[in-house]
Design a binder for these strands. Structure first.
Lengths: 162, 162
DNA sequence: TATTGTTATACTCTATAACTATA
DNA sequence: TATAGTTATAGAGTATAACAATA
């Protein structure tokens, strides 16, 4: 991704007891960019930890979810929806197609475009992975009760300008 | 990073009017992992956009901030604080040292370790970049008023278990 | 001409493993 | 033996540019 650089990355999975090392001063620890980066990092690592037995990345999983609710997306639509370059989507779809989870074929209505759909195997894989992904989300959100989760949802939605 | 995969990446800088494409169903748009990933992605892209004139990444900037408040960190401490592998820190420090912004020397108390400090040039660079970084943060947080920012801070801090 | 997708290429980030120098 | 740091290597992710097919 263009901006893989980010504000600060502090989380260390190997030493959870040092998740908040004492030498990070409040001036950094309370900065929202730092908190956001840390939360994202934690989410990433927990997703990987919970889905280690499956041949899937979080991005793959996200695309399967997208295709579940939007069968027949063009690759260019996937690029728009996921904020990725067209070329990156080519590789992403390639990778899922190699596992037999998605299929692509030219759109009869516009043969420039390729329509991507989930296969039966893809649906099976999605169902087998869903519990692990849900467990990862549960662990990320464990410190928040339902009210707090709603507040966080609302704030992030506002932050994104929705 | 291990988990560069993430839940979903939707944000498209090139087409801000499509920041929330209509085909993302509520079931995905309201998922906290999606919102967190989107917010992080937005933060990353705005940081890069605002600091394009400077030879710096968000991670570089984060390390300079760390060194500002913690002069004389060991590289192994930086690795812990930022959740990075030792080898990655070697390259990170190399890169800043090449720009003349940090120096490293063996710790007299334990000559295995290298102490990293910011140079005068590094402080100058930090001060010249700080306004651009602040502008990036301002733009990310623009949709939230001060109360909402405090709420978000509190929620993310709880999420991280602090 | 513009758009969709592909390929070639390169660069960044990061991990593993093997190494050195110190403790 | 254990730890701090370095180097070599490899893999993933992603960008740019050039290209083919289609509109």
């Amino acid at each position: 991704m263009i901006l893989d650089c980010c504000i600060v990355h502090y989380y260390c999975l190997a030493t959870p007891e040092h998740a908040v090392p004492p030498r990070i001063p409040p001036s950094i620890r309370c900065h929202l960019p730092y908190l956001l980066a840390r939360a994202y990092q934690r989410q990433q690592r927990l997703f990987e930890a919970h889905t280690r037995d499956f041949d899937i990345t979080g991005r793959d999983y996200g695309l399967l979810l997208m295709l579940e609710s939007n069968p027949g997306l063009w690759q260019s639509e996937i690029a728009d929806l996921m904020g990725l370059d067209r070329t990156t989507v080519t590789y992403l779809v390639d990778s899922l197609q190699k596992r037999g989870w998605v299929a692509r074929e030219p759109d009869p209505a516009d043969r420039r475009a390729h329509v991507v759909t989930m296969t039966a195997d893809g649906r099976t894989a999605l169902e087998s992975i869903r519990p692990a992904a849900a467990a990862a989300i549960d662990e990320v959100l464990a410190p928040l009760d339902e009210t707090e989760r709603d507040q966080l949802r609302a704030l992030l939605t506002r932050l994104l300008g929705h």
